[in-house]
Write a protein that binds this DNA or RNA. Structure first.
Length: 278
DNA sequence: AAGTGGCTCAACCGCAGGCGG
DNA sequence: ACCGCCTGCGGTTGAGCCACT
């Protein structure tokens, strides 16, 4: 059985909203709220619009305290960090940026941040070809793509969500908010392909510093992975892999690479990087 | 000045999940 | 337990704008 259409497409108006339509919608919602029924709302106020369209217009444009215009560096950082951690969960990311809508963030990511970030990761002195962008994006956020050759015991995304408190609708906002408040950098590294973002490297390095005392003998210094201008050095991936392999405390097992912790405990490298050791 | 290509962003589309009957 | 409706979400589209030739 087919899905019932949300509205009569023959009589519904599409395209850009006129100031009059905006005014009608805003006035009604200001006075009465949405009434919990977007489908019925346009009929009530005499708009030839689909309920979904009204909802979108309200959420993305008419709602009070909506911020438009350029994103701040801090906002960019939060978006990047969260994207790396949880992927394209725009609504969750938007919840961390008051006044920003998921649509805004999605657009900003797709048109600017993605290019900015991927461009930064391009091999030094080279620009990215179209195919490279696709591949690089998959590496940047494997959870968004099909290929992902790093072992992900238990499913990374699910575990991230669980750790971050995404289990419930209420938990989503609250959980992420508190995590970000503590340290947005602490969330970085979720999309643990082979560390294709600056933040991941930064994060790993901070982890390494923090952990140095916890490991017997410490860990080898993380190799230089970036050029002074922020571009990745040639062979950054290989260097990172070599660095991992050079750590005495990484004991390969069938379940993935394990860290040998002081006191006899061991844990999955990925869990460690993701902060499940807390 | 006109044509063209790239970029931006508002809006649409379709799917998944929640919820009530 | 099942079904249908509604909402919310993420992906995609396309009109308008802008820069470049």
């Amino acid at each position: 059985m087919g899905r019932a259409p949300c509205c009569d497409k023959a009589t519904v108006k599409k395209g850009p909203w006129s100031p009059e339509e905006d005014a009608k919608l805003k006035a009604y919602i200001d006075e009465n709220g949405t009434g919990g029924n977007w489908i019925a709302l346009p009929q009530k106020i005499g708009l030839k619009r689909c309920g979904k369209s009204c909802r979108l217009r309200w959420l993305n444009y008419l709602r009070p305290n909506i911020k438009h215009g350029d994103f701040t560096e801090e906002e960019e950082h939060i978006i990047c960090s969260l994207y790396i951690s949880i992927g394209s969960r725009w609504s969750i990311i938007a919840a961390q940026l008051p006044g920003r809508t998921d649509n805004d963030i999605k657009n900003y990511w797709n048109t600017k941040l993605k290019k900015k970030l991927l461009g930064k990761r391009a091999p030094h002195g080279h620009s990215l070809a179209a195919a490279d962008v696709v591949e690089a994006e998959q590496q940047l956020n494997p959870s968004a793509g099909a290929s992902y050759d790093m072992p992900v015991p238990g499913g990374f995304e699910e575990r991230s969500a669980s750790k971050l408190g995404f289990g419930s609708a209420a938990g989503e906002a609250a959980g992420v908010a508190s995590t970000v408040e503590m340290s947005s950098a602490s969330m970085v590294g979720g999309g643990f392909g082979y560390g294709h973002v600056d933040e991941l490297y930064d994060f790993l390095y901070s982890k390494q510093l923090a952990a140095a005392g916890a490991f017997q003998g410490g860990v080898p210094p993380l190799p230089e992975l970036q050029c002074p201008d922020g571009g990745a050095v040639v062979g950054a991936d290989e260097k990172f892999s070599t660095w991992m392999a050079s750590c005495d405390h990484y004991v390969p097992t069938t379940g993935g690479q394990q860290l040998q912790l002081q006191g006899g405990n061991s844990m999955n490298l990925q869990d460690f990087v993701l902060g499940y050791d807390q």
